[in-house]
């Protein structure tokens, strides 16, 4: 069903969008930036942060929740709304630790970015700040609830995307807090979806700290090594070590990952990795050079092939190797050894 189009003006630009499009979506599609902290394109709209205010006919409205109406005149950057936004961010900062220096999220923090953009060095408002005794029972996710701006993205992603509802808001007013039921029974799949949507440093991967932030980090797009979903992941690499895994939102997995994809990358740098070719002599493995190992293997294969024929040799390939490697492996057995004795575990 084709939607009716509605026309409006955003900052004097004529814009036409399908009916039901919000002002925020319409503006962002035009490349007009409206800051927002609780809004997330893949989650429901709750309008909690109030940072995305714009001016419509002289009235401040939240752009994330207000649909464009025919003939609307929208101003996203009038002094009136800019000042309101600045002060709302100021209010948020009045209850936020000023520890960007050591915060894992520095450089990648949406709140920090807004503080920078509005140049809020010292907040106009100040007062009591929340402080919590951090309870650390979670092996994957580091929670610093003082940094939580109660935007609710984590709560929404846990319910709407993951379907787990492990966390929700508790208490009210200033004491509002995101936590598991009764602050104890965390029934969590540790998918880390909450970590991926958190705009601040309130939720970060435990293993990320203090391996590196944004400086000198190489990002490599690749595919998750676990199940067959083929989720797209981005490896963050510093000093030849994977320091965290993220996922981009515009892929088949929409930026979502599971506990393995997001957190189980340590095996790559495990000290138990095999580092040298090994040949068993007298029942014990001895480290040898590649040349020695490969010559030995080739020689033994040749001997066996000569003695029993090529079909006395078989190969098992791996569902965790690449297409190219699997191709080369079967080619090796078929062309170099001369047998079709090749299988892999996918058959069961």
């Amino acid at each position: 069903m084709k939607k009716r189009m509605v026309r409006c003006r955003i900052n004097d630009i004529k814009v036409e969008v399908p009916e039901g499009t919000t002002i925020l979506e319409a503006a962002r599609a035009q490349g007009i930036y409206i800051p927002a902290l609780c809004y997330h394109p893949k989650l429901s709209v709750t309008g909690a942060c109030r940072v995305c205010l714009v001016e419509v006919d002289g009235v401040a409205v939240v752009s994330c929740a207000t649909p464009v109406e025919e003939g609307m005149t929208i101003i996203t950057n009038s002094p009136y709304v800019e000042e309101l936004r600045r002060d709302i961010i100021d209010l948020i900062l009045s209850d936020h630790p000023y520890d960007c220096m050591v915060c894992q999220k520095a450089g990648d923090c949406e709140l920090q970015e807004l503080a920078y953009f509005y140049q809020i060095r010292y907040p106009r408002f100040s007062g009591r700040k929340r402080s919590y005794k951090t309870k650390d029972g979670n092996p994957f996710i580091e929670r610093e609830m003082e940094k939580c701006i109660q935007c609710g993205r984590c709560v929404k992603v846990c319910d709407e995307i993951q379907g787990v509802c492990a966390i929700d808001f508790a208490y009210k007013g200033f004491e509002l807090k995101v936590c598991p039921p009764f602050e104890k029974d965390l029934d969590c799949e540790f998918c880390g979806q909450c970590v991926s949507v958190c705009p601040t440093g309130a939720l970060v991967g435990k293993d990320w700290i203090p391996k590196g932030r944004q400086m000198n980090i190489k990002q490599v797009d690749t595919v998750c090594p676990y199940c067959g979903c083929g989720c797209n992941i981005t490896l963050h690499v510093s000093r030849n070590e994977i320091i965290r895994v993220t996922s981009k939102p515009d892929t088949l997995n929409e930026g979502w990952l599971c506990v393995k994809g997001r957190f189980a990358y340590q095996f790559v740098s495990s000290p138990e990795r095999l580092k040298k070719p090994l040949i068993k002599r007298n029942g014990r493995f001895e480290e040898v050079s590649w040349d020695t190992a490969l010559d030995f293997v080739a020689q033994r294969f040749k001997e066996i092939k000569d003695k029993y024929g090529p079909d006395a040799i078989a190969g098992l390939s791996s569902a965790r190797c690449t297409n190219e490697e699997n191709y080369l492996f079967q080619k090796f057995l078929r062309a170099a050894i001369g047998t079709n004795n090749i299988d892999h575990c996918a058959r069961y």
């Binding site: 909690a48 942060c49 009045s94 209850d95 408002f125 009591r128 808001f169 208490y171």
Partner: peptide, 21 residues
Amino acid sequence: LQRESCGKCVPCRLGTTRMLE
């Protein structure tokens, strides 16, 4: 009002707190 604010939106949650202070 500060005690009864649900805490959902920033202006009310922090506004009432700062005003009371």
